[in-house]
Design a protein around this nucleic acid. Sequence first.
DNA 1: GATCCAGTCTGAATCGATACAGAGAGGTGC
DNA 2: GCACCTCTCTGTATCGATTCAGACTGGATC
Lengths: 354, 354
Amino acid sequence: MKPTLQAVADAVGVSRSTVSNAYSRPDQLSAALRERILDAARQLGYPGPNPTARSLRRGFVGSIGVLFTSQLSYAFTDPFAVRFLTGVSAAAERHGTSMLLVPLPPAQTDARRAVENAAVDGFCVYCVADEEWALDVIRARGLPYVSTAPRDDAGADERYVGIDERAAARGIAAHVAGLGHRRVALLADAVLPDAPAGPLTLDGVHEAWHPTTRGRLTGFADAFGEVGVDWADLTVVNALGNSRQAAAAAVAGLFDGPAPPTAVLAGSDVLALGVLDALAQRPGGANPPVSVTGFDDIPEAAAAGLTTVRQPAEDKGRIAAELLLDPPADAAAGHVLLPTALVVRASTGPVPRS
Amino acid sequence: MKPTLQAVADAVGVSRSTVSNAYSRPDQLSAALRERILDAARQLGYPGPNPTARSLRRGFVGSIGVLFTSQLSYAFTDPFAVRFLTGVSAAAERHGTSMLLVPLPPAQTDARRAVENAAVDGFCVYCVADEEWALDVIRARGLPYVSTAPRDDAGADERYVGIDERAAARGIAAHVAGLGHRRVALLADAVLPDAPAGPLTLDGVHEAWHPTTRGRLTGFADAFGEVGVDWADLTVVNALGNSRQAAAAAVAGLFDGPAPPTAVLAGSDVLALGVLDALAQRPGGANPPVSVTGFDDIPEAAAAGLTTVRQPAEDKGRIAAELLLDPPADAAAGHVLLPTALVVRASTGPVPRS
DNA sequence: GATCCAGTCTGAATCGATACAGAGAGGTGC
DNA sequence: GCACCTCTCTGTATCGATTCAGACTGGATC
């Protein structure tokens, strides 16, 4: 049996409260006695108050949860997610708070259980697709949270940090449209819950599953609408996962028809890189050239010369955690929109004349 | 006040135990009653058993701690650490266990406190320099742990996963020696606790601070010893941190002397990339060419054409977590050495004849 | 009809601490 | 000399669950 606080109290001949105070409120006892107590504890091999018992009594834990709705192990392979985590950890560090990364089992019942069982004081929810259930559980637990995905029905008092997805998407699409592109494909991950990889028919943007995807597709459509390209003229392509492989698989065959797209606007850099991979693999290479854009501006984007939208990934994480750890008094300040920037590189160019 | 288990019991008119069983041991009550209880819970907005209270009573938490002795937010910027985490998370996922990332405050007293207060069932200790104190705390708490840094005084029953640092280092150094290099610099991070950046005088390898550094330097020295280059003839260079910038700063001026090194063996890829940065910055570029080697084989190494030692980063994390989560019955199986491979790329070449 | 058993449910003890009101000792001010 | 404080320390209630031995019920067994 490990020694408990009581054991130390007995050894020194004081009350439990006093030993507790020796650890948690040094000003409540004389320095001499405190020393005696800590010495005795050392002797007995008492490792300090049991964190769980302490949390129970105190009513808080000292750690925040980070929720990824995709697989946790996948998150670490996504450069954007890693930069987000970097930001969260910087804020956590400053506050002396730990981060609990909670893997969500595939079955929803189990996933709910996982969120219910997480010993944390609040959550940073990285990405909520239709995973409204997670927020429900968090709210039921009465825990604060900060979300990073736009939600249509977000309450005014709900803390959020993100970007203006639609405006940013519109900006990069306008760049592409300005280069003369009119036959365009829009590539996104998990556009519809169970759709196969490849071109897809969407009656409208509203059908898209993820709010983020919805925002970006809407922005793309805005820009092309302005130059006379209707929604129906745009090709929406679905990828099964946010990875280079998934993107490459999704656009396989896309350029083989009689009037292939001259540009592909991807919903993330990772997807865009996958498109570049696919183009490079084609017999004859990417000829005629296809313009490709990404989203996020991950480190690899620069090396690949990818035109993209830059968003401050680390800031997003840092601010999310800060919003959680010391909430602004003013509710309006809990809703943060970060700036974005269009980064033009070599992956976009004028429409080749054929 | 949030409803408690008791409140649900009262609402349904059953005992607390029964409600508890409804959640944790469904086989202990009739399905009908269980439904009634869960319904009532839903009505009352009871979010399920309080995780902290449950942990206290049950005696375990359901999460493992991951300890980085450097800054947590730094860990996310280190590709090797990220891959390690990927592996840990894959194992955690499979076990339905959460990961607690504990930032360690700079002051040692505070850092001890942080380890004492972490609510976890065990620790993966990523990197232990002289931070023996962390292991002391963990042992005092009676928690299991797996370490990934070689320790001179490791007990036989101590779980460990790593590589044969010395042999791997010797291998890559032999490659460099085989190319004819005799004037060689060895670059490592934090060779001595408070040493400045730049060349350093070490009486022997044993003085090096980190066990990992010690292992690698020893291997380097082994290989050069075999071709007649003594320890005293090797230049040890200290970097203030494991980053490209720190490496570049450390080797500034190294190539300005009359007999500059023709090769630099770095203790990590990140450092090696920094050396390449520094060489590229020199007026006239890297001329005559300097051979540079790294260690780890992070993704960026391939792009940079860096000769390095590949070690299975994700496996390291995965196995560490598995060793922790289901310990092998056989104590010897708790000590895992992973394979390494020499990866020769363009960054090493024969000594230029001047 | 007594015995035994499986299936349900209950009650008390327990996990390991913290909070808070208050007791007692010793010192100050007037 | 008395009221009043401050400084230390104690005792009890409490945080919110789980555990385990046992009570009760209704049916099957012999």
